[in-house]
């Protein structure tokens, strides 16, 4: 079992601004990896609803979030009343390719 932080994958299902090739490639890679992960349909939708489960992510210690631009993701959590901790790492699936994103999620340092 790896020592990596828990992973949260956002599907961006409500508007699909994350390129399909990237988000599908990342999902395939996570499913082929040795560990489990959590996934949500759309962090924006959860923030709009102020979903209390965002607090579980924000207060749960280190986490890697595969979503979109880190500035947007951080302030989406803040908008929901549950600011992310400094130890949260955000992997941007809106830029780059799936291999880059998977590399950051499963191994190397993610951009904050």
């Amino acid at each position: 079992m790896s020592e990596r932080p828990p992973i949260l994958y956002c599907r961006c299902a409500y508007a699909q601004v994350v390129p399909d090739a990237v988000k599908d490639g990342v999902l395939d890679g996570l499913c082929a990896s040795g560990g489990g992960f959590d996934s949500v349909a759309d962090l924006c939708e959860m923030s709009a609803r102020k979903d209390p489960r965002l607090a579980a992510v924000a207060e749960g210690g280190p986490v890697r979030i595969a979503a979109c631009h880190p500035r947007a993701v951080r302030w989406l959590f803040h908008a929901a009343g549950t600011p992310l901790g400094e130890d949260a790492e955000i992997v941007n699936m809106r830029e780059g390719d799936a291999d880059d994103a998977l590399g950051e999620l499963l191994g190397g340092e993610a951009k904050c």
């Binding site: 079992m1 932080p5 992973i7 560990g35 489990g36 579980a56 986490v63």
Partner: peptide
């Protein structure tokens, strides 16, 4: 939640 290997748990 994909609970393989007990490494889910972000949520």
């Amino acid at each position: 939640s994909d609970a393989r290997g007990g490494t889910g748990g972000a949520l």
